[in-house]
């Protein structure tokens, strides 16, 4: 059965599988997948399934339907294709073998869960912060002296040394434990110090590209990355 993973700001908010031949996506409640967002038209698009094939069809929506960042009117979907509608991303997976772990799409799915509401609220707060600071920022969440730090340098240093841009705390942390490198609009965090001291979204990393909303842990200090969009 095909699976659709619905993401908002790179965060998974729903995973659905369906046996339907056609599902509709739009803002009004008579759609199979309801996306409550101004950028989504009332009857925005539909996805049709035929055996192992799937096609997304845009219903002449105002803001368009995009497959892998390319605007389409009708497009044959390949496994792992990414459909963008408004602020949402619908990731298409041709076949999954264990549908027990996800929701069966047997009625209308209104994406207005608590998690999504929280994401929307956070998104508003993030936009206010970015607008006030004037660029992508690191927000201090826990065990840090900073509330917000604008990432306007080519390289921002983080660690326990007095001279780094953002101080972090923790046992056996290196003086310059990490650097955040800005390359155009892309931000990456690189571990320079001892291994096993940096996590992004809970995973130990040595180097990782930062995405909006990522949680960065350096030793005991926790930060959130907010990207200017």
């Amino acid at each position: 059965m095909p699976e659709i993973i619905i993401k908002f700001n790179d965060k998974v908010i729903e995973r659905v599988v369906t046996e339907k031949k056609r599902i509709s996506v739009g803002r009004t409640k008579d759609n199979d997948i309801v996306l409550e967002n101004r950028g989504v038209s009332r009857k925005h698009a539909q996805i049709e399934f035929n055996n192992d094939a799937a096609v997304v069809i845009d219903n002449e929506s105002l803001n368009g339907t995009f497959v892998n960042n390319r605007r389409v009117s009708e497009e044959l979907l390949r496994d792992n294709d990414s459909i963008t509608i408004g602020k949402y991303c619908l990731e298409y997976h041709q076949n999954i073998n264990s549908p027990d772990t996800v929701n069966q799409l047997d009625g209308t799915m209104v994406l207005k869960t608590k998690q999504q509401k929280k994401l929307m609220e956070n998104d508003k707060i993030d936009r206010r912060i970015v607008s006030r600071v004037g660029g992508s920022v690191i927000v201090g969440l826990d065990n840090t002296d900073i509330s917000q730090y604008r990432l306007d340098r080519e390289v921002t240093t983080l660690g326990k040394a007095k001279f780094v841009h953002i101080r972090a705390r923790g046992f056996m942390l290196s003086g310059i434990q990490a650097k955040i490198v800005k390359d155009g609009d892309v931000y990456s965090v690189v571990n320079l110090g001892r291994k096993g001291k940096i996590k992004v979204n809970g995973e130990f990393i040595d180097r990782a590209q930062l995405k909006n909303g990522d949680i960065l842990q350096i030793g005991k200090s926790t930060f959130r990355f907010i990207e200017e969009r």
Partner: peptide, 11 residues
């Protein structure tokens, strides 16, 4: 070597 330098101080 990078790890060694990451613990050097500025002053």
């Amino acid at each position: 070597s990078i790890e060694i330098m990451s613990d050097f101080e500025m002053e």
